[in-house]
Design a protein around this nucleic acid. Sequence first.
DNA 1: AATGAATGAGCGTTCATTCAT
DNA 2: AATGAATGAACGCTCATTCAT
Lengths: 197, 197, 197, 197
Amino acid sequence: MGRKPPGRRRGRPREAGLDRRILQAALDQLGTLGFERMSLEAVAAKAGVSKPTLYRRWKSKADLATAALRMLQQSTFPPPTGNARQDVIANLREFQACLLRPNGMRMIGTLLVEEQRLPELLRLFRERIIKTRRAALRRILADAVKRGELDKRADIEAALNCLVGAYYARYLAQGNFPADWPERTAGVALDGLPWRR
Amino acid sequence: MGRKPPGRRRGRPREAGLDRRILQAALDQLGTLGFERMSLEAVAAKAGVSKPTLYRRWKSKADLATAALRMLQQSTFPPPTGNARQDVIANLREFQACLLRPNGMRMIGTLLVEEQRLPELLRLFRERIIKTRRAALRRILADAVKRGELDKRADIEAALNCLVGAYYARYLAQGNFPADWPERTAGVALDGLPWRR
Amino acid sequence: MGRKPPGRRRGRPREAGLDRRILQAALDQLGTLGFERMSLEAVAAKAGVSKPTLYRRWKSKADLATAALRMLQQSTFPPPTGNARQDVIANLREFQACLLRPNGMRMIGTLLVEEQRLPELLRLFRERIIKTRRAALRRILADAVKRGELDKRADIEAALNCLVGAYYARYLAQGNFPADWPERTAGVALDGLPWRR
Amino acid sequence: MGRKPPGRRRGRPREAGLDRRILQAALDQLGTLGFERMSLEAVAAKAGVSKPTLYRRWKSKADLATAALRMLQQSTFPPPTGNARQDVIANLREFQACLLRPNGMRMIGTLLVEEQRLPELLRLFRERIIKTRRAALRRILADAVKRGELDKRADIEAALNCLVGAYYARYLAQGNFPADWPERTAGVALDGLPWRR
DNA sequence: AATGAATGAGCGTTCATTCAT
DNA sequence: AATGAATGAACGCTCATTCAT
């Protein structure tokens, strides 16, 4: 699975960049069609290779899909400006843009559908994508704690779930988003509701 | 849809309970395997009928799947006790129990994967399942407004998204839940974070 | 098969005209789609009855098709005018019009395709349709013999084959017909080719 | 179509003769059962291959059937002897032998039944089979014109239709043939009927 | 007599995977 | 290493026919 260890390679070397092209094609299909409907025939065609070439590199469709997800880049986020609320809102706005892209939510659907058969998919997505984003958000709030703006006992994890989850909930419930969705979400998750006493 | 009034039906009557058995089998498969891997062969076998029997009732696999989802009951929730916080927590706890059941999240994954091809699935799920739950939560908060505990300008919709969405976010990020997840989530979404000033 | 003998009928009488409607629907499908693609479902629907109604009357699809062909009317032809050549040409023209109608040749194709499985179809067509037409043509030529215009030893059967067959041959070879096709065909089949000596 | 020039072929080479075996099997089925009842399952079994092997070569059942017809060889005819009448009779005799073979007329039936859905079938048959035969017959008569035995104005096309068509007509009308059918047909189509004046 | 429900068998097509160069 | 050929298994769907009123 994956690359063989380096060492002196014998025989005909693998064509450079082929792996990337294949994985990119697989990732596309995974996003567009989901795992089940992604066909190796199509992946191979898109990457301009033959099917056995896929099998030489990965031992099954599941393996290829996993490797494709593994390619997902851990995105980097702009450093916090020091204004926690504004940073949170900016982060949410970027998060929204990311998931509103075609296939954003379908990919997540695929992970959930395949969770039993291919737990690795969700695991990788967690590690590569979710973790990074949450780290960025977490840092914003942790900095606020450091600066003394936020109490140490703040339940930051719960807040992260509220902030990010509000997107999923809205998507599932309505499928569309108001322009000020980041502000409103941050409003609730950071400040709570306006209780009278 | 809906049973015809009694009257004398002509022809051989439908086998009693067959619809239910078929739809239940379909729903099982839908939850266990997702739409793509749900096979009419298996649904028919599980329901103890032949495949054409499915086609007499629904004109395609997509139609059957849709009908199966349509069978999902709109659950009923206990009436609010008057203590908003406790009611919210109870609701979240029940929500969590519901989705932690095997296939809870997989079904949602299926809806997302098939959203383009079968938007009806997500539409139905919204109408039957999501709407009901949100209505229950909304009522808890609206009552609090009525009682004057909560300001009228409270962004209730955003709060709903935070409350419910926190589940999705946690599931995607970790896959497990601490025992006090409902309390912590309600804590953040209702009260916000403990800012110092 | 076919109607039961008269006698006093007991029980609910058959709906009047139903047979005709069904057979007409079957004949349509037979012409439009051929035997294999003709579906009893469609025939029943078109006739406004249920499938078992077909089976009460005919014991199989083949039987129904046969009965449908049996319904074909033996057309009647105008009496010869006494001018053999003109009568032949008129007959050919009508023949052509008949077969150029949509499905004219397809029905003949069906008979040929099914000849082994359902020889009855071709047999009936011969008896009802072909025989009648040939009789009309034959009479034209026989009259000419009677009038002494044509020698007794004329090979009338061969001439019939040439006259009628020229249509099939042209259809298979080209698929279209010149305006003066009847005249040209009659020219050759009646007078032969213009040999020099 | 047509084999590529040698060169080094990449990948596993096609099993030798497989194309032929498959097409022959398809042609058999086409002749024996017609297009509709020809099943890819049976074709594959008869050719000793799996169904996807068919699909690697032709993209649909219709395509396979077309290719099978395309395999029909354009037969070659003996050169005219110079005696037009005898040559015509010899040609008709061979024509008759050809079509009397099992499935001869059924294949033609198939072409007619499928003319709307698969016009290509009839087109190919015209080009490969019909055209060749007609050319042979035409040449016989054209030679007679050249030698001055036949007037230039002879309606050769009409004569061809009469000659060849007489077979179809007789087949449809009677289904059997007298031993001297070629002579009698040639008699009428070449010389016409014995008019008294 | 007529109906609507149900079935067994089959079909065209696709796919993940392996084989043979 | 890479290819094109080949396969077994499955799937969605349809049909002629029979069953139970």
